[in-house]
Amino acid sequence: MQVFELTEWGFLIALWVLTLAVFLLAVVFLPRLPRRRLINYAAQAVVMLLVSVLILTSVAAWLNRQNSWYTSWSDLTGGAATALPRQSYGAASPSRVAPQAITGQLTDLQKNPQDNPAFQDKISDAADHGQYFSVSLPGAESGQTYNVMVWLPKSYLHNSDQMYPVIMGFTGFPGSPQTYSKSLDYGHLIQRAVDEGRLRDSIFIVPDVMPGTYDSECVDGTIDQPRKKTPRAETFITKDVVPWVKENLRVGDNPQAWATTGYSAGGFCSAMLSLRHPDLFASGLVQSGYFTPDYTKGQRWNEPDDPRYDLPRIASTGTAHVNLHYFSSRDDPLSWPSLSAFRGHVSGETSLTVDSVASGGHRQDVWLPGMVKSLTWLGHSSPFFAPLPHTSRN
Rank of each mutant, 00 (worst) to 15 (best):
R96Y: 08
G361A: 11
P165I: 05
G197I: 10
S93F: 07
P383S: 05
S316V: 09
S216P: 10
T261Q: 10
A259C: 06
V346P: 02
H188E: 13
D201H: 15
I123C: 01
R35K: 12
P113K: 00
A126K: 13
A259N: 02
N323H: 15
K182N: 14
P337C: 06
P369W: 05
D279G: 13
C269G: 03
V27R: 07
V17N: 02
G267S: 04
H345S: 15
P165Q: 03
W367Y: 12
S381Q: 10
S392R: 15
M210I: 12
P304A: 09
R65W: 12
A259L: 08
S124E: 00
T319D: 07
S124T: 03
Q191Y: 06
R36T: 07
G298C: 09
S142Q: 05
L84K: 08
N147K: 10
W151F: 10
S381K: 09
Y290M: 05
G262R: 04
D125Y: 06
H129I: 05
S392C: 12
S316D: 11
Q100M: 12
G360N: 02
S381M: 07
D306Y: 04
Y89P: 00
R35L: 12
I39Q: 14
L273V: 08
F327H: 13
K229H: 13
S316K: 14
P211A: 07
L152I: 01
L311E: 04
